[in-house]
Write a protein that binds this DNA or RNA. Structure first.
Lengths: 145, 145
DNA sequence: TTGGTTGCAAAACGTTTGCATGTGC
DNA sequence: GCACATGCAAACGTTTTGCAACCAA
């Protein structure tokens, strides 16, 4: 909360070597308001003039995901994984059924629910995954199936 | 509720032709306590002596999913889709990080949250997706990373 | 120096599709 | 009979991997 951690520290703290690529990926993700796919991140980095291969993007994202630095999710109608920086502030998303846009929502109603599950079943809760589906502002009017 | 609907009616009501395969798939899913992948469903049907191809399983599941008869989800660490019968009773799942077992949990804490989102953003909520991750009964003891 | 990281191309994987055939209504 | 469902094999798009070269520590 006090001193601003840089990406190097984040990587070092989780025993990941600091490389240009990982730094760039982390920076991109942290600045992005929305979750991105490996490919779009790859394209974005290329545009910035960074020389990187798609497999490195995949490998880095997987490493960051395994360390909990980024969050990975796959949506049923968009058959690829998307990644976002884990802000640890517990953010969820609203996903538009029509245009697939994702917007973050802060605030999470699940604390009590998790406690309930822990006590009711013999299950140690470590986290959860929540997305809300519907029609966003722009698509609302154009509804009709 | 009152009269027990059979699978034929479920299909007919959604304008899907009744076929042996769809019937068998629906029956399998409805009886299954846990979400299953297309392939495991395929294997299960084969074991029952039903002659079916994997693509039919995929096509049927997709059709049922599009009609809202089944629920489709993809988990970040298990890179394939799983399907479950939509009991309309709003069930969520606990997923074990270690053994990947999924168990249903009834009860959903999200009604108020959805209302909040609808009023706060201009977003028409149509549904949501929630999974809780952690260690199940059996894996709890073996924890350690 | 050394073990982790990268690029490339090829492989793997789950899933989708084209087309000819079969089947429900 | 006709529109839709199916089987098969081939195609697809995303993700993973083997290997040699590279680089951070």
């Amino acid at each position: 909360m006090g001193a601003k951690k840089n990406y190097n520290d984040i990587l070092k703290n989780r025993n990941l070597k600091v490389t240009k690529h990982r730094y760039a990926i982390l920076e991109s993700l942290e600045k992005s308001k929305l979750p991105v796919s490996a490919e779009s991140l790859y394209i974005e980095l290329k545009k910035k003039g960074i020389s990187i291969s798609l497999s490195t993007v995949y490998r880095s994202l997987e490493a960051l995901y395994k360390k909990g630095i980024v969050i990975k999710s796959i949506l049923p109608d968009y058959n690829k994984a998307v990644f976002e920086y884990n802000h640890n502030e517990h953010r969820h998303h609203m996903i538009c059924i029509k245009c697939h846009k994702m917007q973050p929502v802060t605030g999470c109603p699940l604390e009590e629910y998790e406690k309930l599950i822990e006590s009711k079943f013999n299950f140690t809760v470590k986290g959860h995954n929540l997305e809300v589906y519907g029609y966003c502002d722009g698509c609302e009017s154009k509804t009709e199936d």
